[in-house]
């Protein structure tokens, strides 16, 4: 996890470029934040070899949550971190331990913070956290095109 923390750092602390928004600043959230969060999520799932599909589910959760209420910059990152945590649990065959996730956030949050935020998000979205992803679409497409579809065929795709 130590290595991972170096490679995949918390989006809120990656601030090598002065122009980039950082949640610690008082600036309002802007469009770049979403890109940054998304990239951070992809780095995370790739590093741990989790299902890439988790990221699209996580971003769906983030977007829907953010559009459902007023969000401060401080909340945005914990929403994102919690969203990827939920998404990995839902769609990835392999798990990511909460401890690793906390390490990646450089100790900014406790397990209790994430667990509480998790319920807040689930409630806000009425527990509807299974958006169809591009992966599902491809699966349907393969199924309707070929009679035999195997998990391997899906992975190759």
């Amino acid at each position: 996890a130590g290595l991972a923390a170096a490679e995949v750092s918390d989006p809120s602390t990656t601030d090598n470029n002065g122009d980039e928004p950082s949640p610690s600043s008082s600036e309002p959230i802007n469009v770049l934040w979403r890109d940054k969060i998304c990239e951070w999520c992809y780095n995370l799932v790739d590093h741990y070899e989790l299902a890439r599909e988790s990221v699209s589910v996580a971003m769906n959760i983030v977007d829907r949550y953010v559009s459902s209420r007023f969000i401060t910059p401080k909340t945005y990152t914990i929403v994102a971190v919690t969203a990827i945590h939920i998404a990995i649990k839902l769609v990835s065959p392999w798990k990511l331990r909460m401890n690793h996730l906390l390490d990646l956030c450089a100790g900014k949050y406790t397990a209790g913070d994430i667990a509480s935020m998790e319920l807040v998000i689930l409630n806000a979205l009425s527990w509807r956290v299974h958006p169809p992803s591009a992966f599902d679409f491809c699966g349907e497409l393969i199924d309707s095109s070929f009679t035999e579809s195997t998990p391997d065929a899906l992975n190759d795709l």
Partner: peptide, 11 residues
């Protein structure tokens, strides 16, 4: 709080 909401229940 260790791993948050249980996976099996969530699914």
């Amino acid at each position: 709080t260790k791993e948050g909401f249980p996976i099996s229940a969530l699914r």
